[in-house]
Nucleic acid binder design. Structure first.
Lengths: 341, 341
DNA sequence: TTGAAAGCGCTACCAA
DNA sequence: TTGGTAGCGCTTTCAA
C-alpha cells in the first residue's frame, strides 16, 4: 500500500480509502490510485487487514471430507461463505477427538470469525479454548452436551421411525438394525430410536442390533445368523451410508435377500438391484442452515441459542416391484443381448 | 502476548521465545510463562505472526466439492496439509472461470503460501496476478497452457485406450463415446483419445461421439438412435462419473442393454446390475502428489517444473458373468423370498 | 539469559 | 478532500 501511495503521490490513507471504497475521495485522485494499483498489481494484504478487523474466514470441522455426506455438507457451507465473500478453512478430524481439538486450536489461532463443526463426543459446548475467544460456533449433525448452543441436527428418531413403519407396513415383523461405531452420537441415537420404536410397536422378541465396526465378512456372518432358526429376520435398517455399502456387499456375499432400508441416500440407490429404499437426510440443507445461522451470529444476531431439527424423508424405491433385470415372464429379447463387460 | 508478558513479569520477546520454542530461556522462566499462557488461555494470533513469516495456509481450488472425485482429491490434499501443520482453504469454482479468478484473487489477498488448482480453461500458467506474487502453484487434473508449470494429470489417453481395448477384446466393433461438456479439458482430451484410438484400430465407420450436457432423457434418445439401423452400437464408454450416472439411468429408461465402461470408479459400481467396469483414476493419489509437489516447492525445491502423469487402472467387473440377480437356470429358492422394499 | 525498539501492512482517529 | 500518527500482535535486530 505504501508503494502504491508513493507512486500515486498520495498518502497511504488515501489508498486505503480507495481500496475500501470509502467515500470522500476526488474522482481523479481515485482514478490515479486505481491506475497504479492495476499497474503494479497490488492486492491488499488480508493479514494486515485482519489484524484490525475480521479475518473474513470461517472454519469447517467435519469427520471426513471423502465421505459424500460431509462433502455435500461442506459444499453447502462453502457456497454460503462465498456468497458473503468469506473463505472457508476445511479440516477433517477423521474420528479422532484429539485431532479435532488440534484443529480447533488451529482455527482459533487463525482467528476465524466463526466455526461450523460436527462435534466429536467429548467436545463440550463449553470448550474453554473456544468460549474464551467468543468465536461463534454452530454445531451440526450432532448436538453437544452442556450449555445451550446453536445446533442443527436431523430428525434421527423420525428417520428411523419412518424406516421401521415402512417395513412393518410391508408385513415385516422381525427387523434388524445395523449401526456404525457406537462412538458416533448419530449411531447411538439411531440405535436407541430403533429399540424404542420396536418396543412401542409391540413387535415380538428382542430387537436385533449390531453396531460397528463392520466388514463385508463380519456382516455376512451376522446376517446369516439372524436369518437362521425360528423367526428369522426378514428386513434390516442400516445406520448410515457406510453401513449400507457394507450391507449390500454382505448380502451378496451371503447370498441373502432381505428387505433393506438404508440410512442416507446415495447417488446409485436406484441403480442397485433391487433399488434401495432410503431415509434421506439432506446434508446440503444441514450445511446451509448451519452456515446461515453462523452468519446470522456474525451479523449480530443475539437471540438465544436454539436447536433446529431438520426433517428426513423416506424415499421408497422398488416397493413391491420386481427388479427390472429379472422380468418374471419375459426373457431378454434377441438371441443374446450384449452384456456390460 | 503482551498480557502474558505482563502477568509473567517478563518481556514480550521472552514470551515469543517460549511460544516458538526458541532456545535460550531458563527453565523456570519458561515454566512461569507457560503457566500464565495456560491460565489465561492465550493462543498466538496467527495474523500477526503471518505478517512477518508465512501464513501456513494453502489454497485448493476445485470444480465442485460435492463431486466425489474432487472431494477425494481434496481429502488427500487436506491430509498432506495437516501433516505439515498447514491449514487448507477450499473453494469451488463450479465451472465458472470468472469465479475461479475471483477465488484466486482472494487466495492471493490471504497470502496463502501455495495453491493447488484444477485450472479452468482460460487460466494460463502465466496469470499475471499469480506470477507477480511468486506463490507456488501446482495444477492438477488438467494442464495449463503457456510456460512450464508443475502439473499432475492422469493418463487420460491411456485410460480411454484401456477401455476401448477391453471392449474390442470382448468382440465389440461399434463403440460410442459419451463425454461431458466440451468446456472441460478432460472431456475434450478423452474424446480426442477415443477418436484416435478407434482410427488406429481400424474399426469400421465413423466414430459415434456425443458430448454434454446430457440429461437422462437426452441420452436415452441418443442411445436409442445409436442402437437402431444397420450396424448399431453395442458398447459405450463414458467421459466421467457424472456421465456414467446419467447413462445408467438412460439405459434403464430406454430399456437398452449395452456394454459399458465408465470413466471414474464409484463406490457402488459392483452393486449395480450388471456391475460396471470402470477406468479408475485415483483422485486421492492425484491430490496427494500435487500437495507433495507443492510442499516441495515451499521447502525450497527449485528444480525445473515438471508434469507427472498418473496411471489409470481398468477395473473389470462382471466380464462375461451373468448378473447374479437373473440366474439363468435356477429361480430363487423358497416360496417367495422377501424383496427389498 | 533477557529486553527495548523498530517495523510487517493495514485501519482508526483526529487534524488540516 | 486529504494526510499524519498511533497501534493491531507479532518477529527481528541489537544491546545489555
Amino acid at each position: 500500500m505504501a508503494d502504491v501511495a508513493a507512486e500515486a503521490h498520495v498518502s497511504v490513507k488515501t489508498v486505503s480509502r480507495v481500496v475500501n471504497r470509502e467515500p470522500g475521495v476526488r474522482p481523479d485522485t481515485e482514478a490515479r490510485v486505481r491506475a497504479v494499483i492495476e499497474r503494479i498489481g497490488f492486492s491488499r494484504n488480508g493479514g494486515g487487514h485482519a489484524l484490525l478487523t475480521r479475518t473474513q474466514t470461517i472454519g469447517l470441522v467435519i469427520e471426513d471430507l471423502a465421505n459424500p455426506f460431509y462433502s455435500q455438507l461442506g459444499a453447502a457451507v462453502e457456497r454460503e461463505a462465498r456468497i458473503r465473500r468469506y473463505q472457508l478453512i476445511t479440516a477433517s478430524a477423521e474420528g479422532s477427538p484429539t485431532r479435532q481439538r488440534g484443529i480447533l486450536k488451529g482455527l482459533v489461532a487463525r482467528r476465524v470469525d466463526g466455526i461450523v463443526i460436527v462435534p466429536a463426543d467429548d467436545v463440550p459446548a463449553t470448550d474453554p479454548a473456544l468460549v474464551a475467544t467468543g468465536t461463534p460456533v454452530v454445531y451440526v449433525d450432532r448436538p453437544v452436551r452442556g450449555e445451550a448452543a446453536d445446533i442443527i441436527v436431523s430428525d434421527n428418531a423420525g428417520g428411523v421411525r419412518s424406516a421401521v413403519e415402512h417395513l412393518v407396513a410391508h408385513g415385516h415383523r422381525r427387523i434388524g438394525f445395523l449401526g456404525d461405531l457406537p462412538d458416533y452420537w448419530t449411531a447411538r441415537r439411531r440405535r436407541e430410536a430403533f429399540v424404542d420404536i420396536l418396543a412401542s410397536l409391540d413387535l415380538p422378541g428382542e430387537p436385533r442390533v449390531a453396531m460397528g465396526p463392520h466388514t463385508d465378512d463380519s456382516l455376512a456372518t451376522v446376517l446369516a445368523g439372524w436369518c437362521r432358526g425360528r423367526d428369522p429376520v426378514t428386513a434390516v435398517i442400516t445406520g448410515n451410508n457406510r453401513v449400507t455399502l457394507t450391507v449390500l456387499h454382505a448380502l451378496r456375499r451371503a447370498d441373502l435377500r432381505l428387505a433393506l432400508v438404508g440410512y442416507d441416500d446415495f447417488e446409485f440407490a436406484d441403480l442397485v438391484d433391487p433399488p434401495v429404499t432410503v431415509v434421506h437426510q439432506d446434508p446440503g440443507a444441514l450445511g446451509q442452515k448451519a452456515a446461515q445461522q453462523l452468519f446470522g451470529r456474525l451479523l449480530g444476531d443475539e437471540s438465544p441459542p436454539h436447536t433446529v431439527v431438520m426433517p428426513t424423508r423416506l424415499i421408497v424405491r422398488s416397493s413391491g416391484r420386481v427388479p427390472a433385470t429379472a422380468p418374471a415372464g419375459a426373457p431378454p429379447a434377441g438371441p443374446r443381448s450384449p452384456r456390460r463387460t
